[in-house]
C-alpha cells in the first residue's frame, strides 16, 4: 500500500511520461497535455482541496454524530439527520453556485461546498456505530461507576471506530471525485484539465484529469481501508 502511494507520487511527478503517453494515445490532437500546470501541481492542489474539506467534515461530523446520541442532543437527532441528508441530496454544483455570491470565486467556496456535501456518511456512520454498541455493555459500564466521558472514549468510540472510519472513507472517496467540480469556481485541482478539455474538445486534457483523480480515489480507498483496520480494536472485529 505504501508502495502504491509512492508509485502514484512518481507517476504524477514525471511530466515527461504524461507528455509521451498522451501524445501516443491522442495522436490526432495537437498539444494533448494541459499546458497551464504540471500534473504534480494539479494533484497537490486537488489533495489540498480534498484534505481541507475532509478535515472540516470529520471535525464537524464526528462530534455532531456523537452529540445527537447523547441525552443533551437526542432531540436534535432527526433534525441533524434530515439536514445532513439534505446536504448530500443537494447537487454540489448547485451549492457552489449558491455560495459563489457570498464567498466569491475561490478555493474557499469549494471547501465549504465539499465539506457540507461530505457530512452525510460521517454523521450517519458515527450515529450507526454508536447505536450498535450493545445496551448491556453501556449498562454494565455505568453500573461499575464509569463516568460518561470515560464510557464515550474508552468503550463507545473504540467499539464504533470501525463503522465511523468506514463513513470517513466513503466521504473522502466521494470528495476526491466531487472536488473536480470545484474547478468551476476557480479552486483549481484535477478539475481544471477536465473542464478545459470539455470546453476545447481536447480529450487529452479530460483523460489526464480523470485518470489522475480516479487513481487518487483508488489509492485513498486502500489507505483508508488500512486505517480502518488499525482503529478496529482486537476483540471487536
Amino acid at each position: 500500500m505504501a508502495l502504491a502511494a509512492i508509485a502514484y507520487g512518481v507517476v504524477v511527478s514525471q511530466q515527461g511520461w504524461w507528455v509521451a503517453a498522451l501524445t501516443r494515445l491522442f495522436p490526432t490532437t495537437t498539444g494533448p497535455v494541459f499546458p497551464s500546470a504540471t500534473m504534480a501541481d494539479l494533484v497537490l492542489r486537488h489533495l489540498a482541496i480534498v484534505g481541507i474539506s475532509s478535515a472540516i467534515t470529520i471535525t464537524i461530523g464526528i462530534p455532531l454524530g456523537v452529540w445527537v446520541t447523547r441525552t443533551s442532543g437526542r432531540d436534535f437527532r432527526e433534525l441533524v439527520a434530515a439536514g445532513v441528508d439534505f446536504g448530500q441530496t443537494f447537487p454540489p454544483v448547485a451549492v457552489l453556485a449558491l455560495m459563489m455570491p457570498i464567498l466569491g470565486f475561490s478555493i474557499r467556496t469549494a471547501v465549504v461546498a465539499l465539506s457540507l456535501y461530505g457530512l452525510f456518511p460521517v454523521v450517519s456512520n458515527t450515529v450507526a456505530g454508536l447505536d450498535a454498541v450493545p445496551p448491556a455493555v453501556l449498562d454494565s459500564a455505568r453500573g461499575m461507576g464509569m463516568g460518561k466521558w470515560r464510557i464515550l472514549f474508552t468503550v463507545e468510540m473504540p467499539l464504533a471506530a470501525r463503522v465511523i472510519m468506514a463513513g470517513v472513507r466513503t466521504s473522502v472517496i466521494v470528495n476526491i471525485g466531487t472536488a473536480t467540480v470545484a474547478a468551476v469556481v476557480g479552486a483549481g485541482g484535477l478539475g481544471d484539465p477536465i473542464f478545459a478539455g470539455i470546453n476545447t474538445q481536447n480529450l487529452g486534457y479530460v483523460f489526464q484529469g480523470a485518470v489522475a483523480a480516479a487513481l487518487l480515489a483508488v489509492l485513498a480507498d486502500s489507505v483508508l481501508a488500512q486505517v480502518e483496520q488499525m482503529v478496529t480494536p482486537a476483540g471487536a472485529s
Binding site: 450493545p134 448491556a136 455493555v137 453501556l138 449498562d139 454494565s140 459500564a141 453500573g143 461499575m144 468503550v155 473504540p158 467499539l159 480494536p233 482486537a234 476483540g235 471487536a236
Partner: peptide, 14 residues
Amino acid sequence: GYAIQSVGLFPHLS
C-alpha cells in the same frame, strides 16, 4: 459489584 444477565463484557477488551 454489578453483574447482569446479558453480562455486558466489553467486547474490545480481553
